[in-house]
Structures are given as structure tokens and as C-alpha cells.
């Protein structure tokens, strides 16, 4: 296990370097003056342009620039926003809210997704299964901003059950609607994945053997079918954690939730490219770390990986 973890960690290093280099190169190796490009259509105030030139060491050769950028990243320096606040501080302020929203979303999508998926998988081909199969397709097909707006108008404005926007008032009550909206697509994916693996495992040879041992139907389902089916499902949920912590840009934007996603959302609307780069880099790092944790989790769940 320790060797496995170590190997995974080592494999992550080139991916981390590659991903950050890729992000950096996308912004600074493109033709034209990167500073002007960062300013967007409106152009930059001269003071900001000067500060940016200093921050990114544009007078140095590219690899040196990247080295400095990497060193800053590792020391937690994500640069300055246009409002001259360190992006690291903005992130630190926003991250707890994102974590809260992500946790709620995760609970909703896993409980509902696994529950419905298990039922649909057992009764594959039945009415329940077919209904939820169609529902899941619709949830995947309709973009989150349409679901978000629809939910906001219906439950927030028309019915008034929950606040339409969150703002500075972050609580369970205000976050529940955004969490459900955010969970909708992943719920559909988890449902489908659980359904498929449960249906597959139910006919597995070892499940028949377990039944032949004289185990009760409930125990066969829990210990042999569900436990084995959870391996790919938990892996998917783990990857989703990365995406959720990576900020629900659209959802946080629509509901005005002061999380990391909203930070990115407002940076986009204000055309603050340097902040976009910094926040994106942070999100990619979070995503990488959570993927690493998923890999380790996978090894915990599946003994075949651990000893491979």
C-alpha cells in the first residue's frame, strides 16, 4: 500500500509540472503582448500593466518566468487581483463556502444516486428503471444554468420556499437549492453508473456462489452486489469532489454564492485575466490532489489494485 501510494505520488509530479506549464504557456506563449491580451478589450491602467510585468517577469526568458511562477505557486503566492488584494487571500476567504456547498451537494448526489441506481439496477427494465433512465438523460442534457435559473425562478421567486440568492448569508437553508441544482447532473451519472454495475454484478458468478452458500437475499445484495458495485461509483464520486471543490462557476454565479467559483465568475465578467489564471491554477491543483486521493481510495476499496 505504501509503495502504491508512493508510486502514485511520484507519478503526480510530472502531471503537476505539465499542467502548470501548460496553463502558463497558454497565456504567455501566445502571439502578441500578453499584458495587453490580459487587459482585454478595455485595456489596462498603466499602473496595473507595470505591476503585471513585474509580477510575471516578462523580461526574463520563458523558462525562468515559469520557474518563478512555479516557485510562487509552491509558496502560496497567487499574485494580485486588479483591486490589489492578494488572490491567495481571496481564495482563503472563498474556499470554506465552496467546501460547504460541495459537501452538501456530495451528500445529495451520492445518497440519491446510489439509492435510485441500486433500485433501478435490481429491477432493470421495469417502470421505475425506465422512468429514471429518461429523467437522468434529461438532467444530463439540460445545461446547469438552465436548471439553475428554472429552480431559482420556481422555488426562489414564484414559490418563495428558499431565498433566490445567497449573498453574504451562507447557511444550510440558503445553500440547499444551489446544492440540489449542482447535484442534478452528477446524480444522473451516479444513478446510471450504479444501475449498470449493480445489474452486471447481480449476475456475476461469485454472487451466485454466495447465494448457494445459503446467505439471505439482503446480505447477498449488501455484502456482495453493492460492495463490489461501489468501487467504480466511489471513484466517480471522488472525481466529482475535485470538480465541486474546483468551484461550481455557473451555480455560484447564478445564486451569488461567495465561493471560489464566484471569484472566477466575477473575474470573468470583469475581464480580470490575471485573476482568472491564478484561480484556474489553484483549481487545477485542487483537482489533481483530489484525483490522487481518489486513486488511493480506489486501492483501499479494491484489494487487487493494492497489491498489483
Amino acid at each position: 500500500m505504501a509503495w502504491y501510494a508512493g508510486r502514485r505520488l511520484l507519478q503526480m509530479i510530472p502531471v503537476f509540472l505539465g499542467a502548470t506549464l501548460l496553463i502558463y504557456a497558454m497565456v504567455f506563449l501566445l502571439p502578441g503582448d500578453p499584458i495587453a491580451a490580459l487587459g482585454g478589450e478595455r485595456g489596462l491602467p498603466p499602473a496595473v500593466a507595470e505591476q503585471l510585468r513585474a509580477q510575471y517577469h516578462l523580461d526574463q526568458p520563458f523558462l525562468v518566468q515559469y520557474g518563478i511562477y512555479l516557485r510562487n505557486l509552491l509558496t502560496g503566492d497567487f499574485g494580485m487581483s486588479f483591486s490589489r488584494r492578494p488572490v491567495a487571500d481571496l481564495l482563503a476567504a472563498a474556499f470554506p463556502t465552496t467546501v460547504k456547498l460541495a459537501a452538501m451537494t456530495l451528500v445529495i448526489e451520492s445518497v440519491a444516486g446510489i439509492g435510485v441506481g441500486l433500485w433501478a439496477g435490481i429491477r432493470k427494465g421495469g417502470i421505475f428503471d425506465s422512468t429514471f433512465l429518461v429523467i437522468s438523460l434529461v438532467l444530463i442534457a439540460v445545461p446547469i444554468f438552465v436548471i439553475g435559473f428554472a429552480g431559482q425562478v420556481l422555488f426562489g421567486v414564484k414559490l418563495g420556499w428558499v431565498p433566490a440568492t445567497v449573498g453574504s448569508n451562507v447557511s444550510f437553508r440558503t445553500l440547499i437549492l444551489p446544492a440540489i441544482v449542482l447535484a442534478s447532473a452528477s446524480f444522473a451519472y451516479i444513478l446510471r453508473l450504479t444501475r449498470t454495475t449493480v445489474a452486471e454484478n447481480r449476475t456475476a458468478d461469485h454472487v451466485r456462489t454466495a447465494t448457494a452458500k445459503g446467505l439471505s437475499t439482503g446480505r447477498v445484495m449488501r455484502v456482495h452486489v453493492l460492495r463490489n458495485s461501489l468501487i467504480p461509483v466511489v471513484t466517480f464520486i471522488g472525481t466529482d469532489v475535485g470538480a465541486l471543490l474546483g468551484g461550481a462557476v455557473v451555480t455560484e454565479g447564478i445564486f451569488n454564492i461567495p465561493g471560489v467559483g464566484n471569484l472566477l465568475y466575477s473575474a470573468i465578467t470583469r475581464h480580470e485575466a490575471p485573476t482568472i489564471v491564478s484561480v484556474t491554477t489553484f483549481l487545477v491543483i485542487v483537482y489533481l490532489i483530489s484525483n490522487l486521493i481518489v486513486d488511493l481510495l480506489y486501492a483501499v476499496l479494491d484489494p487487487r489494485i493494492r497489491y498489483a
Binding site: 458468478d205 448457494a212 445459503g214 463490489n228 484489494p303
Partner: peptide, 19 residues
């Protein structure tokens, strides 16, 4: 099952739960 009638299945590779 198990108590009165036991089963030894065919393919040893797929008949034990891997986890």
C-alpha cells in the same frame, strides 16, 4: 442452501468475490 445442499462451482477464477 449451504446447510443441506452445497455447491462447488465451475470456474474458480470468477466464483470468489475479489474484494
Amino acid at each position: 442452501r449451504g446447510r443441506k445442499i452445497g455447491l462447488v462451482p465451475q470456474d474458480p477464477m470468477s466464483n470468489l468475490n475479489p474484494v
